[in-house]
Design a protein around this nucleic acid. Structure first.
Lengths: 117, 117
DNA sequence: ATAACAAATGAACAGTTGTTCATATGTTAT
DNA sequence: ATAACATATGAACAACTGTTCATTTGTTAT
């Protein structure tokens, strides 16, 4: 009555399952990790991150660069900010965004490397 | 009549925009990159990849390990296969999956590192 | 205080995604 | 050939996501 049968198969490799189960990180960590990568999983956000590889840009610059509305960019920057992928500083009316840390660079790099195959 | 006004702002930092525009990879590459990261952006798929870090597992093993149906896992493996994140070999009735290459490891690692902050 | 501009936010809508259910394909043993 | 099991696939549906439009907040200059 607890949890239904999810797999029709008879248990095939219980040892491997047990070992995998032991080394698998906690659900919360894996959920957070998925949330992090979700941020990289959208064209607009990838473009924003790439644009910020070289330069610090304000919201309006990014909007023009990518041909999207200021609103769309702002919404995406909010997500990137929440995931600590970008940081920002205010200067007068403008807000300048830049990459938060080196991990963003290396994740993008590893991704690009993977594709060249 | 060509493309509408996307940004209300007056052009603020044309030099920065021009430079960013020059170094920005092609749309196709950035789309592919986003598609790649999209694969990492789901809890089930992240769990599958993590489980395969240590061991080669068959579809049924993974289903039991994660408490999901065989069908759900199979669908996800199809996506991971298409993105070349996992490889597989058939052995009798079972199909064993494993990680395709080292990039998967390092991308997961970089992601985990980023979160420990 | 008011006007002008930059950025942020909320609601809404179309498009996408992940799971389930039912079924098909593939493999092995009888 | 048939039965039994492992995997793959297709359709369908609920949940989620990204953009737009309208509006608000924040900053600077007059």
């Amino acid at each position: 009555m607890e949890d239904a049968i999810r797999c029709v198969c008879v248990e095939t490799h219980p040892d491997a399952i047990r070992r995998a189960n032991e080394t698998l990180p906690e659900d919360e960590a894996l959920n957070d990790l998925a949330e992090l990568f979700k941020l990289f999983g959208d064209t607009t956000r990838i473009k924003i991150l790439y644009a910020l590889l070289d330069a610090e840009l304000c919201v309006c610059d990014i909007a023009q660069l990518l041909g999207l509305t200021q609103s769309a960019i702002s919404h995406q920057l909010r997500l990137l900010k929440a995931g600590k992928l970008v940081k920002f500083r205010r200067e007068g009316k403008s807000v300048f965004y830049s990459l938060a840390d080196g991990h963003v660079r290396s994740i993008l790099g590893q991704g690009m490397e993977h594709m060249g195959e």
